Amino acid sequence: MVHSEQGASDDPGTLGDKGDDLEKRLKAYEGRPSAVAGAGKDPVNAPMIRHWCEAMGDTNPAYAGPDAIAPPTTLQVWTMGGLSGHSGHIGRTEAYDELLALLDEAGCTSVVATDCEQDYVRALRPGDEITFDAVIESVSERKTTKLGTGYFVTTRMDVKVGEDLAGTHRFRILKYAPASRREKPPRRPRPVVNRDNSGFWEGVRQHRLLIQRCTGCGTLRHPWLPGCNSCGCPAWDTLEASGEGTVFSYVVLHHPPFPAFDPPYAVALIELAEGVRMISNVVGTPHDEVRIGQPVRLEFQQCDEELVLPVFRAREEAS
């Protein structure tokens, strides 16, 4: 899990001489509710579970059949209002809106989601009606990051079925004043490398696309995980991908502009010949010519002196 507060430093002066007074005002919101009496727009349901599992490539049998449970990581899904939102602004409090407005007034007009943490207490099953309440758990001291200077705001949401706590979802954002742009060209953001996926990125550095393979049941998986979703075995080895694949799905990014990226561009879900899927870019093809089912072939893109990324090119162009 990424914690974007890592590497942040205290900065006593960036937001002006009134910073101490601002921090006191921000701290006063800790413990106040950010959502009250929220309710899921739909019960936990089998179609959403199926969509989630198909998108994630998760074939765990616990998520299908008459005794199915919802994947634990869908905890927040059942609280979301979708594009239309929750009717009547349900759940959200004035306190949370006031906190964000106070940060806006202080110049922290930009926001980025940094990380989330979830604790699971009981399984959710189709038919469960969920409710939720949330609290402003903490507001950090002033921090300076590469994005700019601002404050980390953490909310804690308790998700219930009836009187029973199903799980807790902590969500952290950074509200910040953007840093001045540097003259040198921006670098592509670095991938998050941890103990579970370091072997994958070492393979990419060597221009090899490695797929995890469970040594218990032989199931291939991507992205890399510490254990097998199919049989639970923690042991694994790797298989080098052939590099052949097809575009399974894609989106075209038009907004927002971001340093080191030049929209519009296509982000595709590539189905490799081995059967697993991965997210990458389709290069060498205009964004409006990318198509589902389009044959592609792997290549490795040297983004800068340090970063190598696996990308895909339309097969007719690659040949």
Rank of each mutant, 00 (worst) to 15 (best):
Q76H: 15
V77Y: 11
T79M: 07
M80Y: 13
G81F: 09
G82D: 09
G82R: 07
L83V: 10
S84C: 05
G85H: 04
G85R: 05
H86N: 05
H86T: 07
S87H: 11
H89L: 04
H89T: 00
H89I: 01
I90V: 14
G91K: 01
R92M: 10
T93A: 00
Y96N: 09
E98F: 06
L100S: 01
L100M: 05
A101I: 01
L102W: 01
E105C: 08
T109L: 00
T109F: 02
S110I: 08
V111P: 00
V111A: 06
V112L: 04
A113Q: 12
A113H: 13
A113K: 14
A113P: 08
T114I: 09
D115S: 13
D115H: 15
E117W: 09
Q118E: 13
Y120P: 00
R122D: 15
R122S: 15
R122A: 15
A123Y: 11
A123T: 11
L124V: 05
P126K: 08
P126M: 09
D128S: 08
I130Y: 05
T131H: 13
D133Y: 08
A134S: 14
V135M: 07
V135H: 04
I136D: 01
I136A: 02
S138W: 10
S138R: 12
R142C: 12
K143V: 08
T144S: 14
T145A: 05
K146W: 03
L147C: 03
L147G: 07
T149Q: 01
G150Y: 01
G150Q: 04
Y151E: 04
F152T: 01
F152P: 01
T154F: 09
T154D: 10
V159Q: 04
V161K: 15
G162M: 04
A166Y: 03
G167H: 08
T168Q: 09
T168N: 03
H169Y: 12
R170K: 14
F171Q: 07
F171M: 06
R172L: 06
L174F: 08
L174G: 05
K175H: 15
K175W: 15
K175F: 15
K175D: 15
Y176D: 02
A177Q: 12
P178N: 02
P178V: 01
S180K: 15
R181W: 12
R182I: 03
R182M: 07
R182G: 11
R182P: 00
R182D: 04
E183Q: 10
K184M: 05
K184F: 03
P185D: 12
P186T: 06
R187G: 11
P189G: 05
R190E: 14
